[in-house]
C-alpha cells in the first residue's frame, strides 16, 4: 500500500515536471505570439515581412516557402521511404536489407547541420543549384527519409506478417500481394509521413545553408530565392528591431501550432488502425 502510494506520488511529480516546461513554453508563446497574430489578422499569414521599424506586415513569403519545401521534400521522401521500407521488409534478413536498415538508422542520428552543409557543398556549390527552395527541400528530405522509413518499416512488417500468406493464399500475383501489404499498412505509413513533415517543418539548421536570408520574395519559379519560417524566426529573433521581434513571436506560434496539428493528425491515424 505504502509502496503503491509512493509510486503514484513519484509518477505525479514527474508528470508535473514534464508538463512544466511544456506549459511554460506554450504560455510564453501564446502571451507573446497571440496578440501579434490577432493584430495582424489574415495579413499576418499572407503579407510580406516588414522592414525594420515598419509595422507588422506578415510571414506569407516564408510560410509559402515552408509549405513549398515541405511538399517538394515529401515528393522526394515518400516514394524513397516507402520503396526502401518495402525492400527492407520483403528481404528481411538479406545482406542488402541489413545494410539499408543500418543506413536508415544512422541517418536518424545524423546532426541536421551536417546534412545542411553537405547539401550546400554538393548541390548548391558543385551542382550549382543555388540557394533556393529546391536545395532547402533536398536537405529537408534527407532529414525526413529516415523518420518516414522507420515508421513505414514497422507498419509494413506488421502488414506483411498478417497479409503476405493471406495474399498468396488467395492466388494473388507477387505485385498484387505487395499492393495488398501496402494498402493494409497504409495508415501507419501515413502517420510516419505526417510525423516526418512535422519534423522538417521546424528544422532550421539545414535551411541556413541551403536557402537565402532575404524574406520578401514570393515563389515565382521553382528556383526563386526563398526560405522558410524557421529561418525568419532565427534572423528576426536576434534583431534589435521591436517589430521584427513581434513578427518572430507570431511566426513561432504559427510554427508550433502547425507542428502540433500535424502530430495530432498523426495520432488520429495511429488510433484509427486499432
Amino acid at each position: 500500500m505504502v509502496k503503491d502510494k509512493l509510486i503514484f506520488f513519484l509518477a505525479f511529480i514527474s508528470t508535473i515536471f514534464l508538463f512544466l516546461p511544456f506549459t511554460w513554453l506554450l504560455s510564453v508563446l501564446l502571451i507573446k505570439g497571440a496578440p501579434v497574430i490577432f493584430k495582424g489578422g489574415l495579413e499576418f499569414l499572407t503579407g510580406i515581412p516588414p522592414l525594420p521599424g515598419d509595422g507588422l506586415g506578415g510571414i506569407g513569403t516564408v510560410l509559402e516557402g515552408s509549405i513549398f519545401m515541405a511538399i517538394i521534400a515529401s515528393l522526394i521522401s515518400i516514394p524513397i521511404s516507402i520503396l526502401t521500407a518495402l525492400y527492407i521488409v520483403m528481404y528481411e534478413g538479406g545482406l542488402f536489407a541489413k545494410i539499408l536498415r543500418f543506413l536508415v538508422d544512422s541517418l536518424v542520428e545524423f546532426p541536421t547541420i551536417i546534412i545542411g552543409i553537405s547539401v550546400f557543398i554538393i548541390f548548391v556549390q558543385n551542382l550549382k543549384l543555388g540557394l533556393n527552395g529546391i536545395s532547402g527541400a533536398i536537405a529537408l528530405s534527407i532529414i525526413m527519409i529516415p523518420y518516414t522509413t522507420i515508421q513505414a518499416i514497422e507498419n509494413l512488417r506488421q502488414s506483411k506478417d498478417e497479409y503476405l500468406e493471406v495474399g498468396y493464399s488467395l492466388g494473388l500475383t507477387d505485385s498484387n500481394v505487395i499492393k495488398l501489404i501496402l494498402s493494409e499498412g497504409r495508415e501507419g505509413v501515413i502517420t510516419g509521413i505526417l510525423i516526418g513533415i512535422a519534423k522538417i517543418f521546424g528544422e532550421t539548421a539545414p535551411l541556413l545553408f541551403t536557402t537565402v536570408t532575404s524574406f520578401n520574395i514570393f515563389l515565382r519559379t521553382l528556383t526563386s530565392p526563398i526560405t522558410g519560417v524557421p529561418s525568419l524566426i532565427f534572423n528576426f529573433a536576434f534583431s534589435p528591431y521591436n517589430n521584427w521581434l513581434d513578427v518572430a513571436w507570431g511566426a513561432a506560434l504559427i510554427l508550433a501550432l502547425t507542428v502540433t496539428i500535424l502530430f495530432t493528425l498523426a495520432r488520429i491515424f495511429t488510433r484509427r488502425k486499432l
Binding site: 498478417e162 497479409y163 500468406e165 493471406v166 498468396y168 493464399s169 488467395l170 492466388g171 495488398l180 494498402s183 493494409e184 497504409r186 495508415e187
Partner: peptide, 17 residues
Amino acid sequence: LRRRVGIVFQQPNPFYH
C-alpha cells in the same frame, strides 16, 4: 493451385481496411 486450394488461419484475418 492456390486458387483451387484455399486456406483459413487460426487468427481471423479479414482485411480490416
